[in-house]
Computed example of a mutant assay.
Amino acid sequence: MRQRHHFHIDYLGHSVSATVETGHTPAVEVLVDGKETGYATTRDDRPVSVPIELPTDPPTTVTVRATPGPGVPRCMLLATADADPQVMAPRLY
């Protein structure tokens, strides 16, 4: 059975949202300021990383790492290799 889980974080003045759709082939869609900027699928409950660019000057590359399972999905924003990951808060829609 497919379910959608929504996550959000504000980073560098931009809205970053992720939707994780669970099921046989989990999918992750990432929006920056309401525009789709990344999409990926995975198998089973394997984590997936979605690289995106924030519209800063110059553009900032970050990664959204989604874990569809087991259990409740989770999302994190990875800004740089040496920075701590930031947990994206779940949103009820």
Rank of each mutant, 00 (worst) to 15 (best):
V50C: 01
S17G: 13
A83Y: 04
R91V: 07
V62A: 14
D45Y: 09
V62H: 04
T41E: 15
T61A: 10
T63P: 14
V28N: 00
G23H: 00
H6S: 09
R46F: 12
V16S: 02
E36K: 10
R2G: 11
T80H: 14
R4M: 09
L92S: 09
A83P: 07
R4S: 10
T80I: 13
D57I: 13
Q3E: 13
T61N: 12
P85Y: 06
I9T: 11
T61C: 08
T61E: 14
T42C: 05
P85Q: 03
M76A: 10
R91F: 08
D84M: 09
L78P: 06
F7S: 00
L77C: 02
V48G: 10
V32H: 03
D44M: 06
K35E: 06
V72N: 09
P51V: 04
P26Y: 03
G23N: 00
P73G: 01
L92Y: 09
A66Q: 11
T67V: 11
V28D: 01
D10I: 10
A40C: 03
D45T: 13
E29V: 09
Y39L: 15
G71A: 04
M1A: 12
P90C: 06
T22S: 01
R65P: 08
R74F: 06
I52Y: 08
G34S: 00
T61P: 07
D44A: 12
E21F: 02
S15N: 05
L77N: 07
